[in-house]
Amino acid sequence: MSETILEVDNLRKTFGGIVAVDGATFDIEQGSITGLIGPNGAGKTTTFNLISGFYEPDGGEVRYDGQRLQELMRPSRDEKVIWGGAAGITAGALGGIAGLGPLGLGAAPSLATLAGGAAVGSGLYVGQEAVKQNRESHKNSRPYMLAREGMVRTFQITRELSEMTTLENLMLAPQGQAGENLVNTWLRRGKVSAEESAIRERAEEMLELLEIEHIRDEEAGNLSGGQRKLLELGRVLMLDPELILLDEPVAGVNPSLTRKLMDRIEVLRDEGYTFCIVEHDMEVIMNLSDTIIVMNEGAKLTEGSPEEIRNNEAVIEAYLG
């Protein structure tokens, strides 16, 4: 077998008195398609939200590529710069005002108190962040950090950017675009526009791949349910991820399109992408999955190949009927 890309270990999440996920434990192999099934309320979508960092777990651990999610979701450089800078500016301003006003030090020494204040302010931020990260109970929740690492998800109820066109939706996705930085936008326009052309080309290819070129300039809010599903899949693929979490990718998609989507996913799997799919359409799950994980009441009921699952007594009782 190939390597494990995602390890879920004893994951727990409660909402008030309801235990949504209760000790789920499973692994996902690299380059495989894993189906996640179970009756309504079994905790599939909550598990998805936990894995993708949208919820903070109450217990347990997830490892992606051998690294703990909590490590991966530490504050980004930008965030540190903003908070540290703001703390520095605020404390520096207070220091400067204190030097000029109450302390009456005059202009030049006040510059020193200003600098001192700034140092203390940024230092305080860095210090409290370090203390916070070392506390066991502290939970990071920064889903975007996981997407940067190559793990992306789609949403059960499609969440398209409704005021933006299909093409724009796709062009938004690629990581690390130079033009997302204001300095580049203003001063390095040649670079930005060259990159933009490349991204546009890729987006056009993606439209062709998903056979939705005809809705290229349509606002995403006007698309049909099935088209939105395709758009979401395309947007995720534009990211060039390693692990793709699909939450009900074919719900509301017509049979021929479903067939096409499944072929697409299989081809992508063979190219090395890893998929984890929550789906209620048994035909899709059974045909597509290499491994199926069955969840019930917040925990893993069983796991196995489609053939094994189909004949498993417990699964039939709990879910397949």
Binding site: S52, F54, S76, D78, E79, I82, R142, P143, Y144, M145, L146, A147, R148, V152, R153, T154, F155, R159, E160, L161, S162, E163, M164, E168, L172, A173, Q175, E180, R235, L239
Partner: peptide, 18 residues
């Protein structure tokens, strides 16, 4: 504009709305 539309999508695409 994406942030204006839906912050969660922006987050799921690896960009920090904040």
């Amino acid at each position: 504009r994406a942030v204006r539309n839906d912050e969660d999508v922006v987050m799921s695409l690896g960009k920090d709305p904040f």
